[in-house]
């Protein structure tokens, strides 16, 4: 069925025979601010390269496409041995026990957001807008919606519903599959 697409054409010689777009399938199961970035960066980049992309949000990952929870995504200070000190010159990480103190999660999140802003990183809402603009398909796992107490109306526009068979169908035809 496939003809003349065994070899990726040199970018110097592009014709109508350019191969089928590659496909990226992502499962996103984490709902912290730092874990929201890798899938959205990969997905938007792939889509900008012409790839066909689908993201399946499940469990805590649903928070990334939750209208109310998405703006409140946080960095976990508890059980995070990589938690850096507020001032980068301090040469040690924050002891994990300290991360359990009240207010630490808010402080850690504020700190991370300030670093992201200084580094000029796109925000999560910006990346979600780009994802929609580039036609990335976003699916909420309808099985875990109920588990996580999320109703259909809680989700941002453009998110559809699908389950494991739909993911596997897409992933089976994909070039790259990542579980994040």
């Amino acid at each position: 069925m496939k003809t003349n697409i065994d070899v990726i054409p040199d970018s110097q010689v592009v014709s109508d025979e350019f191969p089928e777009p590659k496909r990226l399938a992502l499962i996103v199961s984490k709902g912290t601010l730092d874990q929201a970035y890798p899938p959205l960066v990969m997905a938007t980049t792939a889509a900008s390269m012409g790839w066909d992309v689908a993201i399946f949000f499940t469990f805590y990952g649903l928070d990334i496409v939750h209208k109310d929870r998405m703006p409140k995504l946080s960095v976990s200070a508890v059980g995070n041995p990589a938690m850096p000190p507020p001032m980068r010159k301090v040469p040690f990480h924050i002891p994990t026990l300290v991360g359990a103190l009240p207010g630490m999660e808010g402080a850690a999140t504020k700190m991370m957001k300030s670093w992201m802003s200084k580094a000029n990183l796109a925000t999560i809402p910006e990346l979600l807008d780009i994802a929609k603009e580039l036609g990335i398909r976003m699916y909420a796992c309808n099985t875990t919606l109920n588990v996580m107490g999320v109703s259909n109306d809680d989700l941002i526009d453009g998110v559809e519903f699908a389950g494991a068979p739909a993911f596997l169908d897409f992933a089976g035809e994909s070039d790259v599959q990542l579980f994040i």
């Binding site: 960066v41 938007t44 980049t45 900008s48 390269m49 580094a119 000029n120 990183l121 796109a122 780009i130 580039l134």
Partner: peptide
Amino acid sequence: RGLVCPMPTIRLG
């Protein structure tokens, strides 16, 4: 300028 990955290639696209 000033933008970090993935924005330069997104803007190019």
